[in-house]
Design a protein around this nucleic acid. Structure first.
Length: 597
RNA sequence: GGUCCGGUAGCUCAGUUGGAUAGAGCAUCAGCCUUCUAAGCUGAGGGUCAUUGGUUCGAAUCCAAUCCGGAUCACCA
């Protein structure tokens, strides 16, 4: 049981005994005491005053007296300011906590729940390389999956690859016309970038053709449709859908190049998937459900034969599910995919990590599934994250302001190299160790930067300033870990001692030791909270607070050369739990920690 | 226009089931390395919590209106 739970239990009993008033944990406000007041945890009593018909001060004092008298193991003192009851947690309890957990590396992880959760993330198109927005998506998705695992859930990480459609044909056509048989290999280009360049090429030609037509007096809208290269692309899509072997062959080849490029990036950033779906395999599957829904009268047709769903009663609009020519739209293939996922894994919850620009689409998808009577409809959850924007506005490929994933990763790793060299602490590293260290620090900075912000909110990235390595950053936390390892190396060579403390004979804590222990004790609660909110930034913020508190402690307390053996043991335990919590929480963010830096 | 999201320090962000003097990092300024890693620590300055009104013992947090920004409302994906 956590300290807060223990406090709640004691308070509930106190209220019952002293006031004959029944309450529950969630009706109690228990928070960390603000630094300017005495105490560790604070119970806010204003809301209870009316219910037990007394004054705030009286209630707080009565409860305080009760708690200190009946829960000596838990509390050592209290004070009252108005309706705030500030409680001092007993040193003995905290020292026992330290002794019990300093060697416990699963501290924080929960027992298995038997619940299966699917997390879909990344979901790239195969016509261009990944960019900064994808990185945010990938880091969030991956981290959420790990956080859910830590909470005892079975997690299936999935990825849907949007590998077909008109946009894919664009790069194919441009390659066919302008590449002269070039490949990623003979041009020494990463496959996804290679293909992406032809997508850009397509758009350049397309634009030229449009302006040519417009200059001949053709209206813009018509020009967009009539541009020869666009016509050719549509023909290609048609050929693709009719399984034209040449087109399919080209498609296979070019997508293959892209996959090789993606795989390289995924490997580098540690993204992995248990199951990858391809839109080309699933895009037709939704059709049957649409026809079925139509037969059951849940859908309707318009005069031209197109099939629609009426969601006006749900506060949404009418939505097209099948075109008049019988071909499927985005929504249709999403219905199909949802079914495939469900049939394959039967998850209790299916999380889609998708940008907030698709809020409406996902709302509609869920309602459509509901109307069609899908058993999993209510278990679909759109984890909607905000776009990454630049200080100058949105990233636009047209204006060349897209921050490429591979570029930014290279950049942050080279910055890590630069900083490390400048500090000159790595003289005993081999070349390989150095390369690994730069990756660890660079990627740590990158991932932490993108995960420390609430996923729901859009965030702003300033490409002029490189990602920071000081303060509320990954490297700061990594550094704290490395620092602790350094202390351990010192202690281990010193002498062999047992680090168990007898909490019945030693009960001294400095204020900072106490604050640190109280923070560390909250780790399991934080993991639960992060899972409940599906929010990795909760972990990031917590890891930072731990590192910050430890550094303050470190600065004013000798560890290896503490005054007494008991103090030395306690501080070792404290450092050990801190290191463990840092390592474990950073792991949940996909960030590794170095032994030295 | 409808719907949804947002506006907190110069910048990037915490804080919203209503609670104590609104926090952190960066940036700026002033200190701290003969002691376990200075990617660190200590301190200072910096706020009309978009605006106005309301609800009450108490509002950044709840309600209403207004202003500003964004997303979305395709036989695109």
């Amino acid at each position: 049981m956590t300290i807060v739970e223990k406090i709640a239990e004691a308070v509930i009993e106190g209220l019952l005994k002293e006031y004959d008033f029944k309450t529950t944990h969630k009706d109690l406000q228990i928070t960390l005491t603000k630094p300017e007041f005495e105490g560790d945890y604070t119970l806010v009593l204003f809301s209870l005053v009316k219910k037990v018909n007394t004054t705030p001060e009286l209630l707080a004092n009565t409860l305080g007296e009760y708690l200190i008298k009946n829960y000596k193991e838990l509390f050592q003192d209290f004070n009252v300011i108005k309706g705030f009851l500030n409680l001092g947690i007993s040193n003995k309890l905290l020292i026992t906590f330290a002794a019990d957990n300093y060697n416990n590396f699963s501290f924080g992880t929960k027992a298995a729940t038997g619940k299966t959760v699917m997390v879909e993330y990344a979901s790239p198109n195969t016509n261009k390389p990944l960019h900064l927005g994808h990185l945010r998506n990938i880091f969030i998705g991956w981290s959420i999956a790990e956080i859910l695992k830590a909470n005892g859930h079975e997690v299936i990480k999935t990825c849907i690859v949007n590998d077909r459609g008109i946009h894919i044909c664009k790069s194919m056509l441009a390659w066919q016309r302008y590449a002269n048989g070039d490949t990623p290999k003979n041009t020494h280009t990463k496959g996804d970038h290679f293909v992406g360049d032809y997508y850009v090429k397509f758009n350049d030609i397309y634009k030229e053709e449009i302006s040519l037509l417009v200059s001949k007096g053709i209206p813009n809208e018509t020009a967009k449709k009539e541009a020869p290269i666009m016509k050719a692309t549509q023909d290609m899509l048609l050929a693709w859908e009719n399984n034209d072997p040449k087109v399919k062959d080209l498609w296979q080849t070019m997508n293959g190049w892209v996959y090789e490029g993606f795989a390289e990036t995924y490997k580098r950033i540690g993204a992995d998937f248990d199951k990858t779906y391809y839109e080309s395999d699933t895009y037709l599957l939704g059709k049957d459900f649409v026809y079925e829904g139509l037969e059951e009268g849940k859908l309707f047709t318009k005069e031209d034969g197109s099939i629609w769903i009426d969601l006006t009663a749900e506060g949404l609009e009418e939505k097209l599910l099948l075109r008049s020519d019988g071909t499927s739209v985005y929504m249709t293939s999403d219905i199909g995919l949802a079914n495939v996922k469900y049939n394959e894994y039967h998850p209790q919850k299916s999380i889609y990590v998708i940008g907030d620009e698709q809020n409406y689409h996902m709302k509609v998808l869920q309602q459509v599934c509901k109307k069609l009577g899908m058993p999993y409809a209510d278990d679909i959850f759109h984890l909607s994250y905000g776009m990454v924007e630049l200080t100058t506005g949105k990233m636009k490929s047209r204006e060349g302001t897209v921050v490429d994933a591979d570029d930014i990763i290279d950049e942050v790793i080279s910055t890590a190299k630069h900083h490390t060299e400048e500090l000159g602490k790595t003289k005993d590293f081999t070349e390989n160790q150095l390369m690994a260290l730069y990756e660890t620090i660079g990627l740590g900075a990158m991932k932490f930067y993108l995960l420390r912000v609430d996923p729901k909110k859009r965030m702003i990235f300033n490409p002029e300033e490189s990602i920071d390595f000081h303060g509320f950053t990954g490297p700061f936390i990594q550094y704290t870990f490395a620092r602790i390892q350094s202390v351990f190396r010192k202690i281990n060579t010193d002498e062999k001692i047992s680090f168990e403390i007898d909490a019945s004979s030693f009960q001294e804590l400095t204020p900072l030791e106490k604050e640190l222990l109280i923070l560390l004790e909250q780790y399991p609660t934080i993991i639960t909270q992060a899972a409940d909110e599906l929010n990795p930034s909760v972990i990031a913020l917590y890891a930072f607070q731990i590192a910050q508190k430890f550094n303050t402690f470190y600065n004013s307390h000798a560890i290896a050369s503490a005054d007494t053996m008991e103090q030395k043991k306690l501080r070792f335990e404290l450092s050990s739990i801190t290191a463990n919590v840092i390592k474990s929480s950073m792991q949940l963010l996909g960030i590794s920690v170095p032994q030295k830096m």
